[in-house]
Design a binder for these strands. Structure first.
Length: 883
RNA sequence: GGGAUCUUAGCACAGCUGGGAGUGCGUCCGCUUCACGUGCGGAAGGUCACAGGUUCGAGCCCUGUAGGUCCCACCA
């Protein structure tokens, strides 16, 4: 038995213990057929990232689950790794180059990639080290990176397979283009933002069959006038009487002097505006579809940097917004601008840089979703994969049911390069895991690889199996896959969760995980998102330095329902640090009194109080385990908190003190010591997943024969420890003590002032339990003498009574020194209530009030009257007792 | 437009399958009790958004209304 330091100092224990765990290899998991596996793969943090509260929450939840399962005897693997984060990293490196005054093009692809890898070596480990500060028990020996050799192999393998199947294809389709990042992005990366804009009402001249202007016009509105340069038709609804005659006629596209047809298409909403839509297949997804149906030409009028290209006639070279102004001006001069109207509309922006994206047609690689998504839908529908909380299913299905082909090519350099090769001579495309020696068609030996890279999420989608060694047939894959639970924020369901699910089914033929456990966002004290631009982010590392990782972890999992956002308060961390301090001191107290190792007490040596706390702890084990199995982590730890602080510290330890100080009665003292130690040990174990450091430090000092709590067995519920009778008995005594304290403090008597108490009960069992627990009843009630009897005939002095079911406790008036003060207080209260009652009665007698006031108001007054009357009766009763 | 979610004490939030209205912070009163003032004991404070319904019984289930937050879609 060692002693604990006098003060709880997280900084002094956390790093030391983490080091010990690493050295002992407790985090490491090896395939072991004799044990059941439990696996979690980490959502790989970006190598560009710094630990923020979102990570802290995510990692804490995973660590709690993995530590819990490890203690339950599972072979627990927490597979860690990091993500190359193609666009985020590329942007960072470009920024850095910019400081040096060079662009990525200046540097060239190869040199650029060298820089990127350098950057990865330098900063890629930073976030991993920060995760360790939290206490994360990842198997660091198995750390992976989305661009390491194995993951590259997995990516190429999947690409080739899916291409062979026809599920990856290259095609010219409308994609979202970010003109600042100079790359295509997927639908999921577009964020809609409401912006103030305008409706420009424009008219195009209708032509006669011979090509001359008929003098008629067709009018419509647009929010993006510059796209008119690429118009190839104007559409109306096929059944719209107003425009029936015009269908099939030609219009003159102003400024471009191009003849375009009027087509009829169901897509047009007759009710909206004039019921006419200009069709720009090159720059609008809907128009693109209309264009396909009517064989309209697709004209792209934009360059990659969102300036107008040569298809834009004289506007060529202008920026998109300059062109907009110029076009509106010219239309106005031509008398074709009918009017301008203010209008707010949703504009698609790039989630990473905030630039307004331009839909445009480009040749890109896509993943065909229609077949791929089917098993992913079925799996959740049939409960093969469980989403927690269940409400996430709606969001999931909403996305699954509206999924479109996934644009996976990016015009970036940092990432997995697309394994497609084009013959320089005949243009043949070859998709293969490695570069082919010659073109299979023409035999030419000069082939060049597609310059594009893959969407970051393409490799992330394979994470649950690529980290376990796929496409090799490893024993890890056989044993640890499918993983058990994926823990992640609900904001990432579209990017990642869905894509992992369909990839798992497609490549492995099985789900990637059994359960997805979603959590919310961590917000600041005002409920705002933590963000760099607002500067309201709270650095988890600072919190750890100040309060300890244990306190931070506890804060992140309490006071919050699964899936909901939470607000972060320093006060809450402080409260949780206080809790750690409380356990520390309680443990210190126990150790101080434990002169020798307590022996297991014989049957009958345990006293009522011991049985009570053992029974309570036993219930706690059952409840906590149950809650944790159901992912109700916050509820579970709240129960542990309440148990340790209220039941164990404030009641049990206090009850047991007289026995500890009484060195004469060795049996009783041993029973108490034994109970203290075993209940504390179980409580520490239950708490360990949440607060790994304090619990470990205490455990190791308390248990001389065990080396770590994290590999000790999880406590089990046992019917043998169920003492319902003692539970009930002690609850009744607690109630009595509370009643006495209440009465005495209410009368301004310090509880430390000893009193004589008369306990009167007609029930023999009640009297017995008070007799049996006399020692701590005395000490806790602040009594010097307790007289237990069947009736009050023996009481000669005047008393105040405390009533609990089947028991009356009498406190002699002589003990209550400040009785006059109490009388005064009660009299004041009586007066206040009387005047309130008079007021309410007055209101209710007032005819005008009754006739005019809303019924609710009247009811309220009646309610008040009733309530105050009740309170008055109570106060008078108390006064009566005093007199 | 569709969907999710929230509305509970001064503030922030728990409340699992319907039966006790709770936790943290704050407020007030009293305690240098030999583990802890990062503490101990006590108190005040709530028509659980509103209106109906189901039920012996509703914070919880159903319908509707109002307000907040978020997601998706998007009408040019």
């Amino acid at each position: 038995m060692r002693e604990l330091a006098k003060t709880y100092d997280p900084a002094g224990i956390e790093d030391k213990l983490y080091q010990k765990w690493l050295e002992k290899k407790y985090f490491h998991a090896e395939v072991d057929e004799s044990k059941k596996p439990f696996t979690i793969v980490i959502p790989p943090p970006n190598i560009t990232g710094q630990l923020h509260m979102g990570h802290a929450l995510d990692e804490t939840l995973q660590d709690i689950l993995i530590r819990f399962k490890r203690m339950q005897g599972y072979n627990a693997l927490w597979q860690p790794g990091t993500d190359h984060a193609s666009i985020a990293t590329e942007v960072k490196i470009i920024e850095k180059l910019k400081e040096e005054g060079i662009s990525k093009e200046d540097l060239g692809r190869e040199k650029f990639l060298e820089r990127a890898w350098e950057w990865k070596r330098e900063y890629g480990g930073r976030i991993v080290n920060q995760l360790k500060k939290l206490g994360s028990s990842c198997d660091w020996d198995r750390e992976r990176f989305t661009m390491d050799e194995g993951c590259n192999k997995a990516v190429n393998e999947v690409f080739v397979r899916m291409h062979e199947k026809g599920w990856i294809y290259k095609g010219s389709r409308i994609i979202n283009w970010c003109p600042v990042c100079n790359t295509s992005i997927s639908d999921a990366e577009v964020e809609y933002e409401e912006q103030a804009g305008h409706f420009w009402h424009i008219k195009y001249p209708v032509l006669n069959d011979d090509g001359s202007e008929s003098g008629e016009y067709i009018e419509f509105a647009t929010t993006r006038p510059e796209t008119m340069l690429g118009d190839t038709a104007v559409a109306v609804h096929p059944e719209d009487e107003r425009y029936k005659d015009l269908v099939g006629k030609k219009l003159m596209l102003p400024l471009m002097n191009r003849e375009i047809p009027v087509v009829a298409d169901e897509y047009v909403d007759r009710e909206f505006g004039t019921g006419v839509v200009k069709i720009t297949p090159g720059h609008d997804p809907n128009d693109f579809e209309v264009g396909k149906r009517h064989n309209l030409p697709v004209i792209n009028v934009l360059n990659d940097d969102a300036t107008i290209n040569e298809n834009g006639g004289k506007f060529c070279g202008m920026d998109r917004y300059e062109a907009r102004k110029a076009i509106v001006k010219e239309l106005e001069e031509l008398g074709l601008l009918v009017g301008i109207e203010d209008h707010t509309h949703n504009v698609g922006t790039h989630d990473r840089c905030g630039t307004t994206v331009e839909p445009l047609v480009k040749a890109q690689w896509f993943v065909k979703m229609d077949e791929l998504i089917k098993p992913a839908r079925r799996a959740v529908k049939e409960g093969e994969i469980r989403l927690v909380p269940e409400s996430m299913q709606k969001t999931y299905f909403n996305w699954v049911d509206n999924i479109r082909d996934w644009c996976i090519s990016r015009q970036l350099w940092w990432g997995h390069r697309i394994p497609a090769y084009y013959c320089d001579k005949c243009g043949e495309t070859v998709v293969a895991a490695s570069a082919p020696a010659k073109c299979p068609k023409c035999g030419c030996e000069k082939l060049s690889q597609d310059p594009d890279t893959l969407d970051t999420w393409f490799s992330s989608a394979l994470w649950p199996f690529s980290t376990l060694g796929w496409p090799e047939k490893t024993k890890e894959l056989e044993y640890f896959y499918p993983t058990d639970v994926l823990v992640t924020g609900y904001d990432i369901i579209f990017f990642w969760v869905i894509r992992m699910i369909f990839s798992g089914y497609e490549q492995m033929g099985e789900k990637p995980f059994k359960t997805v456990f979603f959590h919310g966002l961590v917000r600041d004290a005002q409920g705002r998102k933590m963000s760099k631009s607002l500067g309201n982010g709270i650095d988890p590392l600072e919190i750890i330095a100040k309060y300890g990782a244990d306190a931070l972890r506890l804060t992140l999992v309490t006071g919050n329902a699964p899936g909901n956002d939470m607000r972060f308060y320093n006060e809450r961390v402080e409260a949780n640090r206080n809790f750690a301090n409380k356990i520390w001191n309680a443990s210190r107290f126990i150790m101080m009194n434990m002169e020798e190792e307590p022996k297991a007490p014989a049957a009958g040596e345990l006293e009522a109080a011991d049985r009570w706390i053992i029974s309570k702890a036993n219930d706690l084990v059952r409840d906590v385990t149950e809650n944790m199995e159901k992912y109700e982590l916050g509820v579970a730890v709240q129960k542990i908190y309440d148990f340790i602080w209220d039941e164990f510290c404030d009641w049990y330890i206090e009850m047991v003190k007289p026995r500890l100080y009484d060195k004469e009665n060795g049996t009783s003292r041993n029973a108490a010591m034994y109970t203290l130690k075993s209940v504390l040990t179980d409580a520490l174990k239950l708490l360990h997943p949440y607060m790994p450091f304090v619990t470990e430090e205490i455990f190791c000092n308390l248990q001389s024969d065990e080396e770590s709590i994290m590999v000790s067995p999880w406590p089990l519920y046992s019917e043998d420890k169920n003492y319902a009778k003692e539970e009930a008995e002690l609850e009744s005594i607690k109630e009595a003590i509370r009643g006495i304290r209440n009465a005495r403090t209410g009368m301004n008597v310090p509880p430390s002032k000893k009193a004589r108490l008369y306990v009167v009960s007609e029930l023999a069992e009640k009297r017995e339990s008070f007799e049996a627990n006399r020692a701590f009843f005395n000490s806790l009630a602040g009594a010097s003498e307790v007289i237990v009897s069947e009736d009050k005939s023996g009481i000669t002095e005047e008393c105040v009574s405390v009533v609990i079911p089947h028991v009356n406790i009498y406190i002699p008036l002589g003990e209550l020194v400040d009785i006059e003060k109490e009388k005064e207080r009660l009299k004041k209260e009586e007066e206040r209530l009387q005047s309130e009652i008079a007021r309410a009665e007055g209101m209710l007698k007032n005819e005008r009030f009754i006739s005019k006031a809303p019924a609710a108001k009247i009811e309220e007054e009646k309610g008040k009257l009733e309530k105050y009357s009740r309170m008055l009766a109570q106060v008078r009763e108390q006064l009566q007792a005093l007199v």
